[in-house]
Design a protein around this nucleic acid. Structure first.
Lengths: 360, 360
DNA sequence: TTGAAAGCGCTAACAG
DNA sequence: CTGTTAGCGCTTTCAA
């Protein structure tokens, strides 16, 4: 439980003042080589290391070389890839990174942000949860730079790195429609998450573009796990008029659809790419984002701000790209004009025959 | 670029001394409720937040409530899951977590550890890379607690959380042998990584147990990526006497084997479970570890040390468990006594007929 | 119940 | 080239 060495210990051992030790440690000029050597020897002997928190205290105004990164869930490969990109960028700048997961809880986010700011972070990269982020304004007023990534914050004008989720979803669903699908199910996570909202808007837009409307019986929101998504797909497939295609709006729901065992029997396109999607049968078509690029871009924006960039907040919109692998290219019933929308409400009273799928 | 509020600002605004503000902030008794209310109002108005680094400076000896976590690669789902477990545990203790990736570079590990220690971390959870960790001894002598996870450090007596890699590998390979496989390939990452060494030992032990020896032509070390692993499998399968089974020694090499397109034609067992392994055809049998449990255990050990536990270093060995899904249960040629080991060296001069696989 | 003084480990600014 | 003084924001200790 020995206490840490300080500059005083080194100064004493080398027979110099602490100021000289400071100069040596910080490679400042104007120290006699012999003196420096003596100091360096003492440093090595004592295993001395500069206390960067004390240093920071005295040099307030200078960056502390520490940033905070708050994602939704570090165990999610998407955020893990994003985090790694941020960490790589930070290391290149000789910064260290505090990490945290919000698990979609505003309270937890607030706590973690407070803890990070109490540690005097120079900046925060945030995947903000739903809800008001007014509490950030006060931190920013005191000098903490903030960049949002993956999701924006309502009512807070900060740099942001987003993906055009709506367009990605619309394009994907549009392709399903072109292939003759009309009964396309939407499988979504919590709709208050911004990305989910956007993807749902894109889903609707694809229908609207053609003067069509999605069947409300095929919409499932709030699926928080693979298991919930799998169950939702199973229940959809048991309906009198099951879907002929699934649009799963994130990696979790895509995997849930695969778990359900119905993938292959219906077309499937998912938002978010995931490992081995190309090795399943059929290979899963996705709308892919690039989490590493998102993290790198967020880090770049943040370091520019920390470096003094005071220009108006920037918004960087990356596009998602469709990766057609097969599951999304299963054709639907021929695109004959639909007989009309489903009955006003409730389950259809007379189940029609099972829909036939065209051979691929 | 406004500067951060300090206790002095609050004290001034509330018309009290900084000491009183300190007492209010830290919920110390002996402040008149009215005074406290006045202080709290000032805190809110100014958006004041305690500077925990300055606080820590004065209370040296007390934990700074910050730990460092250094993994091999944060983007690897295995380490991401481990990191999440550590972060969850840390938050429960009101600690923050500095994160870093070593990418199997001792230099980078040393740099990151130094940066963390300069930030006065109370402890480190480390997935150590190969090589000497003597530099840690000096940090530990100055009070930084260290716990190793996933891999031990040679010549450094610290708490460690390991998995019985050797036994896991031996059991898996033993099963392949029982099923009649003799030509089992070993696909490995860098052999200087401890886990790889152990898994290779287990591979050899399974053969030795039965008085057999693996064919040296079927051993591939140093595969650093899916692509390299896929290429290695392809080249193995082109050999005159290809393997009838593959033992892939981590998730990357397992996926590489799948990429190669030969999975299914030969038996496959991989070390490390991965998402969707159960959805491939055939479903991939694995030796599974529990990264979340490993992270949680490491955190528990570390917090005990930080809390003052001075007992001798502990070693916690978790076991890996075989998850049989199909790919590892493809039978090999009937277990007839082998005609003898392969020719002394070089490729076999006379390619024999392709080996027939039993129907499953 | 409140405050003043001292000092944590370090560096800026000045002196010698 | 080297050292002294002062003070970063906070808490400990002691006094009022």
């Amino acid at each position: 439980m020995a206490t840490r060495r300080t500059m005083r210990d080194v100064a004493q051992a080398a027979g110099v003042s602490v100021m000289t030790v400071s100069r040596v440690i910080n490679r400042q000029p104007g120290v006699l080589p012999e003196t420096a050597a003596r100091v360096e020897r003492a440093i090595r002997q004592l295993g001395y290391q500069r206390n960067d928190t004390a240093r920071q205290l005295r040099r307030s105004g200078q960056p502390a070389q520490i940033i905070g990164l708050l994602v939704d869930d570090l165990a999610n490969p998407f955020y893990a890839a994003l985090a790694r990109a941020v960490e790589d960028a930070a290391r290149r700048q000789h910064y260290v990174v505090l990490i945290g997961s919000s698990h979609d809880s505003l309270d937890r986010e607030r706590e973690v942000v407070a803890a990070f700011c109490a540690r005097q972070v120079d900046g925060l990269i945030l995947v903000p949860v739903a809800g008001s982020h007014r509490f950030l304004a006060s931190q920013m007023a005191q000098g903490t730079k903030v960049v949002c990534v993956d999701r924006p914050t309502a009512g807070l004008d900060v740099d942001r790195v987003l993906v055009d989720n709506q367009r990605g979803a619309r394009d994907a669903v549009s392709r399903l429609l072109s292939q003759g699908h009309r009964r396309i199910a939407f499988l979504g996570d919590r709709p208050d998450i911004w990305t989910m909202g956007e993807r749902y808007l894109g889903f609707q837009a694809a229908f609207a573009e053609r003067g069509l409307e999605p069947d409300p019986h095929l919409i499932r929101h709030g699926l928080r796990s693979r298991a919930e998504a799998a169950a939702a797909v199973a229940s959809l497939m048991e309906q009198p008029q099951p879907p002929t295609a699934l649009f799963t709006s994130n990696d979790l729901t895509s995997m849930g659809a695969i778990d359900s065992g119905h993938a292959g029997a219906v077309a499937l396109v998912g938002f978010d790419d995931f490992a081995l999607a190309d090795k399943l049968s059929p290979p899963v078509s996705v709308v892919a984002q690039d989490p590493a690029a998102m993290g790198a871009a967020a880090a770049e924006l943040l370091f520019a701000r920390i470096g003094g960039d005071a220009s108006p907040p920037r918004e960087l919109i990356l596009s998602a790209r469709i990766v057609a692998r097969g599951s999304g290219e299963i054709a639907g019933p021929r695109a004959a004009p639909e007989p009309g929308p489903a009955p006003a409400a409730g389950p259809a009273p007379e189940p029609g025959p099972a829909l036939e799928l065209d051979a691929p």
